[in-house]
Every structure is written in C-alpha cells, then in structure tokens.
Design a protein around this nucleic acid. Structure first.
Lengths: 203, 203
DNA sequence: CAATATACAGACCAACTAGTCGGTATGTCA
DNA sequence: TGACATACCGACTAGTTGGTCTGTATATTG
C-alpha cells in the first residue's frame, strides 16, 4: 500500500527530476549546479541528498526516469502509426509540429548528454546506448512493417535506412542548434527526405 | 621586424592553445579548468592572463587559431583531390585512416564546442557557424566539380548532397562517440555511401 | 648605458562547488 | 499512545573556480 507520505515524497522527487532535466538541457550535466537546481525546485539541500546520493545519481535518474519517457513520447506516435515511413517524412518536413523551440535551441537532451558524458562516465554511456539501440530497432521494425504492407520497396535494407535516418536527424538537430534556427533542420534533412521518397510505393 | 622575444612569447602562446584544445576536447569548455591547463602547459597564471584576458578569450582563440586549422587539415586533401566524391566515399569507408582514435573517443572538437556553447554564447556560435558554412560551400563546390568532370550525375543537387553528407557525418561521429567504437561510424554512414555510389558515374 | 615595455611569476581573493552532518517535524504502525 | 522511520532543514566544510595584483627579470630601443 502506498502511504500519503510516500506520495508526497514521490512528488518532491519528481519535481527535482523535472527541474534537473531542464537545467541539464540548458547547461549540460557538469555545468549544472545542484545549488541552482535546489533554488529553482524550492527544495533544501538535505532534502535533495535524501533522494539522491550524489550528483551522478541524479544524472542517471534523469536519464532513466525522465529522458527515456521524453523519447517515447516523441517517437511512439510515429513508430506506431499506420504508415511509419510517411510519418517520418512528415516529421522531417514539419519539424515545428514535433520539436518545441526549446529543443531547437538546446538540442536533443539525450544526445547532449551523450556527447558530454559518454567518454567520461560509463554509467551515462551504457544508459544512452540502450536508448539509441531501442530507437534503432523500433524504427527498423516499423520500416519493415512498411515493406510488408507494400508501402516501401523491399530492395532497401530497413536496418540500414533506420540507422541513416537516425544519423541524419542527430546531425541536423546539432546543426540547427548551432544555427539557432529551425530552418536549418529542414535544410539539412531535405536530402534524406528525397531519398526516403524514392523508397516509397504510392498505392 | 620580429624579435627573439616575440618569438618566444608566440611559442608560449601556442603551447597554451594546444593544451587548451586538448583539454576542451576531453572535458568540454566549461568543465575545462584554467588551473589544469596551466599545470599541463607548465605555465604560470600570470603568464596565462598576459596572453588571454579571460577564459572566454582563450575559447575564441582555440576556435580561431587551432580548430579552423584542424578542420582544414582534415578536409583539404579530400576537397582538392582529383575526384572529391570518390574521396568522400573512401573516407566514409575507411574512417580509421582519417580520424584518429582521440576523435572517435571524444568526437569532433568543433561540433562538441558547438553543442555545448552555441546556445550560451554568441561569440562561439557565430565562429562555429562560419566554419560550418565554409565547409558546406567547399564541399558543394567540389561536388559540382565532379558533375562538370562527368564523375557525378548532374540531376543531383550538389548543395543538397553536401548538406546531407555533413549531417550524416556529424550524426555518425556523435553516435560513434557514444558507442565508443569506430565500427559504429561505418555502420551509420553505410546508407549514405550506398546513396552516394548511386550518384557516381564510372568511366 | 639608461629607460621602457614586454613576458612572466605566484600569492591572493571572493564566489562557488559537491557533499556532510546534527537536528527536527511528522506520518505510520505496533 | 508511544516508538520509530522517513522526509526534510540548513549551517558548515574542504576544495576548486576564474580572475587580480604586486613584483621581477630581461630583451629592446632611444
């Protein structure tokens, strides 16, 4: 049974995680200050260290509990749609509908963390790799579904296309972040869209 | 006239820049400590602040004087080669010959800095954007040269292909960095290679 | 040779860092 | 009701940060 007390504690923890995710998106993990997170979450230091043993533990928790969700929220509609290949093309053509302006400004929170922390901390690295692997597998399976339902040519290797899509998106998000404007995103994915359209079978 | 004194000072400055570039590649800009750079460069604090007014100024100098060179060293041979399209394909197929293991581990130094600093500091952002823009233009021109010399089909849009190549490379370097192994790089660029080969005209 | 400017040395500072620790208030449960 | 555990409080510490300041040694120049 879950007590009132545990409920309250859980919401405190969630609040810390949410604020931490924001701060990390803005400043990166290492340059995010616990003190600043405490201030913004209106939480005392004692409270924070009651919920998280170290700053590293906070980082892991943000990945495990917050960012995996973020990724699922973004991609599940696309992957489970009627025609995933078309959905991917739609997303690349209308990124505004899928990416909020925070993401354009600060990039993909998962990829940011990957770039900063993977060479430095195996715990971050393995968690992020798991997310990427799952992403790739799901996208590949969705594309295979397109092939089976006759919406995508069977000559293409679904796995290879999936990896290409992911690489282009990661690259384009990074470049758009640097340009600080979303038009760059479409500019850099246009080549991919043209390629994907050649794989489509229109019934 | 350049005095012996200025020569010595220049070499001190260069030493600081080289060490700083290494440290920034490893830890990022914000998490690189000036103290650590001083220690590794065997240089006093007074000396450092004689050459660079602030940490920010050091970061700008690393971009302007060190990383632009790094980029040129890497790409000039490819861009000015007989058949740039083929050279790009070669590079994607044999990244080991072009990327050292430090780059695989820590990623592209320019892109790292972009992802970390572009949203936070306009000086970093604009410098990096200039490098990217130059890169894209040069690559596009090289591909046009391929089209003119009959090594690449003219139906393709050189500019669009250039941006696609850059996006995929950035994405793949990032993913390889996360996986911490260079095989990921070729895995994620394979789709692009197949695409590029379709653009080739073999005489 | 004397005056000066440059290159460097390193003690010092205020602000900030992650993390600790003794204490407290209160919901839970026997 | 009373003992206990959980959630939280915030002063404190030890160390690090970027940056300043006074001082010095010497190459350059008038």
């Amino acid at each position: 049974m879950i007590t009132e007390r545990e409920l309250q504690a859980g919401s405190t923890r969630s609040k810390i995680l949410a604020i931490a995710a924001e701060e990390i998106l803005r400043n990166g993990f290492q340059s995010s200050s616990i003190g600043e997170i405490l201030k913004k979450a209106c939480v005392s230091k004692g409270c924070f260290y009651h919920h998280f043993n170290t700053k590293q533990a906070l980082g892991y928790a943000v990945l495990d509990e917050s960012l995996t969700q973020t990724k699922t929220q973004m991609w599940k509609p696309i992957l489970t749609s009627e025609n995933p290949l078309q959905s991917v093309i739609n997303m690349l053509n209308n990124p505004d509908q899928y990416l909020d302006c925070e993401t354009v400004k600060h990039g993909c929170p998962i990829n940011n963390l990957a770039q900063e922390m993977s060479p430095l901390d195996e715990g971050f690295r393995s968690r992020i790799e798991a997310i990427y692997t799952e992403w790739k597998i799901q996208l590949s399976e969705s594309l295979q579904r397109c092939q089976n339902s006759g919406e995508m040519i069977k000559e293409a290797n679904a796995d290879e296309i999936a990896t290409l899509v992911i690489a282009v998106i990661q690259g384009a998000v990074g470049i758009a972040k640097n340009a600080q404007q979303p038009t760059s995103f479409t500019e850099y994915t246009q080549g991919l869209v043209n390629y994907l359209q050649k794989l489509q079978i229109h019934n």
